[in-house]
Structures are given as structure tokens and as C-alpha cells.
């Protein structure tokens, strides 16, 4: 089965390592994926603040394009939590509210598009755990992540407000995946607590403490690394560590990677293909510790 892939703006920009690691690790698992042609921005959270109906219309164009590109089984994989939520939310609103449905169908028609509600929007975690399965994945592990303690951070929008494939309060799919790869997962209750989202860029005095709390808790629980499933979470947690250190007057440093980067490493994918060289806080696998770093 082939999956359509919706990158979204962030995975083509600051967070391209997420795209690189999704593509490379899926290739290593022999999962076929194909980028959605001429996709547009999902609208993200910011668009909803200006015009909600237009944000649904933008998301619906992507759904319509997905149906056109893969008429048989249109499954659209969205790794970015923001995109994943907006695309899912649009589907919920199209189903629940007839006025939204009418307006959006009309808008698509004006651009000679149509959407027959056939697309299944899925997060890569969902596909890996519930479609490919941990058995299949574990059979392909080349370099088990033994001795690595991972804090799995799911962020907000994968499980809220819709928890389509995991537990809303205590999600487990990423923990399950990490243990399959041979890593240990630390038990921490902040799995889905807000990292600050776009407030980090707009009001850092508010955003920095939110992300700091998450990292501090992960460190207190003995984590070597935080694994994320969202480009904005990764950016906030990694790129503002200098600011956190300054504000809270202590040296704070912990690598923050995409869960797909750890997956790729375990599958034996070369680090460069996983975008490991793009990390600002370098990450070292326990096996390689004391020796060379994972990336140059």
C-alpha cells in the first residue's frame, strides 16, 4: 500500500530533518510514500485566528488533491502535528456542520475541485504501530538503541482534541516504538503538556518557561534524549535551550530529536540521511559514547 505524504511548510523549512528522517526511515522499512502534488499550507493554528472558514477551505484543497492523486485508497500521512490536526479537524467539521460542508464544497467547486470525504488522514506513529506493526519493525532493527533512555514527547495536537489512534491522557505509541527499537522509555507525566507553541516566537517570556519545565522534568527522570513528533515542539525544545539557561541561570542541555531520527538510527540508516547534522544540540548513541559523536 502506498501512502500519500503531506509535508507542510515546516518540514520544508526550519525542520527539514523531520522530512529527511521520515523519508529515510520509511524507505528502510520498505514503505512506499509519495508526496502530495502541489499541496498548500494547511492553514495552521494562526489561520484559524483570522478566518476559520478559509482555513477549512485551504485544508480541504489538500484533501481534494489527495483524492485525485490516489483515487483508490487515499491515505494522507501528515507528520507535523499542526497539519495533522488541521486536516483532521476539517474532516470533523465537514461531517458535523452542514453550513461548513456547504460553504467548502462551493469553494472547491469554484476552483473545479471536489472532495468526496474519502481521505484517511494519519500520523506516521499511527501507521508505524497500527499498520506496519512492531514485529515487522523489530525484524529490521540493525543497531538496537540499547542503554538509551528516551523521554517520549507527543505534544498537544496529536491527541487533542481528537485522540484517533492513541490514549488521550497517556499516549503510548511512541513509547512502544522506542522500546521496540531497544531503548528504555522514562515515565514522565508531561507527554502531552503544551511546549508553548508559537508563543515561543511571539512572547518568549511566556514560551520559554513552558518548554523549560518539560526539559527539566525529562532530565530529572533520567532521560538522555527527548523524542518529539512535531516540528514546532522540536524547535522550541531544542533551539531555545540557550535562552532557558540564561533565564533560569543554570546550564541546561539535552538533545531533542524526532522519533523518526531514532527509528532511522536503529534501522541502520546513515546519520546524514536522517538530518542528524542539523541538530543544534548534538546527539550521541550510547554505543558510540566515549568515541566519536553520531555526527561530524
Amino acid at each position: 500500500m502506498k501512502y500519500l505524504y503531506y509535508p507542510g511548510c515546516s518540514l520544508k523549512g526550519t525542520n527539514r530533518a523531520y522530512e529527511e528522517s521520515v523519508l529515510a526511515s520509511f524507505r528502510a522499512l520498505d514503505i512506499e510514500i509519495e508526496e502530495l502534488e502541489d499541496w498548500n499550507c494547511c492553514g495552521a493554528t494562526a489561520y484559524m485566528a483570522v478566518d476559520e472558514m478559509k482555513s477549512f477551505a485551504l485544508a480541504a484543497r489538500n484533501l481534494a488533491l489527495a483524492e485525485r492523486q490516489a483515487p483508490d485508497h487515499p491515505t494522507l500521512m501528515a507528520p507535523c502535528s499542526g497539519c495533522y490536526l488541521v486536516l483532521s479537524k476539517t474532516q470533523h467539521y465537514l461531517e458535523e456542520y452542514s453550513e461548513v460542508s456547504r460553504t467548502i464544497d462551493g469553494a472547491l467547486q469554484a476552483a473545479r475541485l471536489s472532495y468526496a470525504r474519502q481521505v484517511h488522514v494519519r500520523h506516521p506513529l499511527d501507521i508505524l504501530i497500527h499498520e506496519i506493526g512492531v514485529q515487522q519493525i523489530s525484524s529490521k532493527v540493525r543497531q538496537p538503541l540499547r542503554g538509551l533512555k528516551v523521554a517520549c514527547y507527543y505534544g498537544c495536537q496529536i491527541v487533542r482534541p481528537y485522540a484517533a489512534f492513541d490514549d488521550q491522557v497517556n499516549p503510548k505509541t511512541m513509547d512502544h516504538l522506542m522500546r521496540t527499537l531497544g531503548a528504555e522509555t522514562v515515565d514522565w507525566p508531561l507527554k502531552t503538556r503544551c511546549c508553548g507553541g508559537s508563543l515561543m516566537g511571539t512572547l518568549p517570556e511566556v514560551g520559554v518557561p513552558l518548554s523549560y519545565i518539560l526539559l527539566k522534568e525529562a532530565l530529572k527522570r533520567g532521560a538522555d534524549v527527548v523524542a518529539t513528533a512535531c516540528p514546532l515542539c522540536q524547535f522550541n525544545l531544542e533551539c531555545y535551550q540557550d535562552k532557558m539557561s540564561r533565564q533560569f541561570k543554570e546550564r541546561l542541555e539535552i538533545p531533542v530529536v524526532y522519533f523518526t531520527q531514532l527509528l532511522g538510527l536503529a534501522l541502520g540508516v546513515p546519520e546524514r540521511q536522517l538530518g542528524m547534522h542539523r541538530l543544534l544540540v548534538p546527539f550521541t548513541l550510547p554505543a558510540a559514547r566515549g568515541g566519536a559523536r553520531v555526527h561530524a
Binding site: T45, M48, C156, Q157, R160, P161, Q168, R193, C194, G196, G197, S198, L199
Partner: peptide
């Protein structure tokens, strides 16, 4: 920040 904690 649209984290939806309240909504759920």
C-alpha cells in the same frame, strides 16, 4: 496556544 487541554 491552542493546546486543547481545556476543550478535552
Amino acid at each position: 496556544a491552542s493546546c486543547y487541554a481545556c476543550a478535552v
